[in-house]
C-alpha cells in the first residue's frame, strides 16, 4: 500500500507486544571501562607517546642489561688504545686480529685512559636513569604526603607548611648540595669501611648527597600540585561521608584523597624524571656528581670538553644521549597527561 506522506497511517505490527528476543536485543551490556583501562587505551592511541615509550625501553635495555655481557668493562683500561677513533684498533689489537683472534670493535672508540667509550656511555646512562628514577620516587613520596597533609588540614597548618615550602624553594640549591656533600663526607667515609656498607664507596658520597638534596629541596613543586588537588577533592561528598563514618584523617588522606589524584601523581612523577636527570648531569658536569671511575652522562660530557677540538664525538655521544632520554620522558609524560586528564575525555 502506498503511504501518504502527511497522514497517520499506522502499522498494526508496531503495536504488538515485544517478543523475548526483541527485549533481549535492547538490553545492551557494554563492558564497564575502568579508569585505568580508559587511560591506557587513550595512551595506546597516542603515537608520539608510544614511540617515546619504546625509546625509553630500548635505552633501559642498553643501560641495564647490555653492559653485563659486553666484552669490555666500564673501568677497564686497555693498554695502548688511548683515544682510538670509532671502529679502529690499537697496534696490539691489530696484532691479535692478524693472529686470527676475535677482537670486539670499539664502536665509539676509547677515551683518554683507553676505556671503551660505548660501554661507558651505557653505564653512564644507567647511572643517570637510576638517579632520575630514585630521585623522582623520593620526591613523589615526600611531596605527595606533604602536599596532602597541608591541603587536607588547611588553616594555620597549611599556612605554616606552605611558608616552609617557600623557604625551601628560595635557598640556592648549589649551596645546599656543596654544603651537604661536605657535611656528610666524614660520617659516610667511616660508614663505608664498615661491613655491608661498601656500596657507599662505589656510588660515591656526592651522589648520596645529591639524593639527600633532592629529598630536601625538590619536593616543593610536587607538594604544591598535590595540595591544590587535595583542596578541591576534600570538598567532595565521599570525603564528608568517610568523615561521618568515623574514618581517621590518615585513612582519608591515604584511601580517598591520594588515590583520587593518582593521575596527577603519575604524570608529575614522569615529568620529574627528566628534570632530575637534568640536574644530575648539571651537577656531574660541575664535578659534584658521581665518584670516579663510575661515569654518568654529565661527567662524560664534562671530561670530553678538554679534547673537544680533536675528539668532538666524545662530547656529542653523551650530549645526544641526555637529550634523547629527557626528550622521550618529556613526550611520554605529555602523553600520560593527555591520557589521564579527564577533561580531555571525549
Amino acid at each position: 500500500m502506498k503511504q501518504n506522506t502527511f497522514s497517520f497511517q499506522l502499522k498494526v505490527d508496531d503495536f504488538l507486544p515485544a517478543t523475548d528476543e526483541e527485549k533481549q536485543s535492547l538490553v545492551q551490556m557494554r563492558p564497564s571501562v575502568s579508569f585505568w583501562k580508559d587511560a591506557i587505551n587513550r595512551l595506546k592511541k597516542n603515537k608520539v607517546a608510544m614511540v617515546s615509550l619504546t625509546l625509553i625501553l630500548i635505552i633501559m635495555v642498553l643501560a641495564f642489561i647490555v653492559p653485563n655481557f659486553y666484552p669490555y668493562k666500564y673501568e677497564q683500561q686497555i693498554q695502548g688504545s688511548e683515544y682510538l677513533r670509532p671502529m679502529t684498533y690499537s697496534v696490539q689489537e691489530q696484532a691479535r686480529i692478524d693472529a686470527e683472534e676475535m677482537v670486539f670493535p670499539h664502536i665509539m672508540g676509547t677515551d683518554n685512559l683507553g676505556r671503551d667509550y660505548a660501554v661507558r656511555l651505557m653505564v653512564g646512562s644507567r647511572i643517570s636513569l637510576l638517579v632520575g628514577l630514585i630521585a623522582s620516587g623520593i620526591i613523589l613520596i615526600i611531596g605527595s604526603v606533604y602536599g596532602a597533609v597541608s591541603g587536607f588540614f588547611g588553616g594555620w597548618t597549611d599556612m605554616i607548611m606552605m611558608r616552609i615550602a617557600d623557604i625551601v624553594y628560595t635557598v640556592p640549591d648549589i649551596l645546599l648540595i656543596v654544603l651537604i656533600s661536605f657535611a656528610i663526607q666524614e660520617p659516610m667515609a667511616s660508614l663505608a669501611t664498615k661491613p655491608g656498607f661498601h656500596w657507599i664507596q662505589t656510588i660515591g658520597v656526592n651522589l648520596i648527597s645529591i639524593f639527600l638534596v633532592f629529598a630536601l629541596l625538590y619536593w616543593v613543586g610536587m607538594a604544591r600540585i598535590v595540595r591544590s588537588q587535595v583542596l578541591t577533592l576534600k570538598q567532595s561528598e565521599y570525603v564528608t561521608a568517610a568523615k561521618a563514618l568515623g574514618a581517621s584523617n590518615g585513612r582519608i588522606i591515604r584511601k580517598h584523597l591520594l588515590t583520587n589524584c593518582i593521575g596527577t601523581l603519575i604524570v608529575t612523577t614522569t615529568l620529574q624524571i627528566p628534570s632530575s636527570i637534568f640536574t644530575e648531569s648539571f651537577l656531574s658536569f660541575l664535578g659534584l656528581g658521581v665518584a670516579i671511575p663510575l661515569p654518568s652522562l654529565g661527567s662524560l660530557a664534562s671530561d670530553a670538553i678538554n679534547g673537544l677540538n680533536t675528539y668532538p664525538y666524545l662530547l656529542l655521544a653523551p650530549a645526544i644521549m641526555i637529550s634523547l632520554i629527557i626528550l622521550s620522558f618529556n613526550l611520554f609524560g605529555d602523553g600520560l597527561r593527555d591520557a589521564f586528564d579527564p577533561k580531555m575525555k571525549s
Binding site: 627528566p274 660530557a301 650530549a319 618529556n330
Partner: peptide
C-alpha cells in the same frame, strides 16, 4: 620547542663553541 627543552645548557654551550667558535 620540544627539542629545545630537552637539551641541557652545557651541551648547547660546548657544541655552539665548537661549531661557531672553533
Amino acid at each position: 620547542a620540544t627539542g629545545g627543552i630537552a637539551v641541557p645548557s652545557f651541551v648547547l654551550c660546548t657544541v655552539g663553541m665548537y661549531v661557531f667558535g672553533v
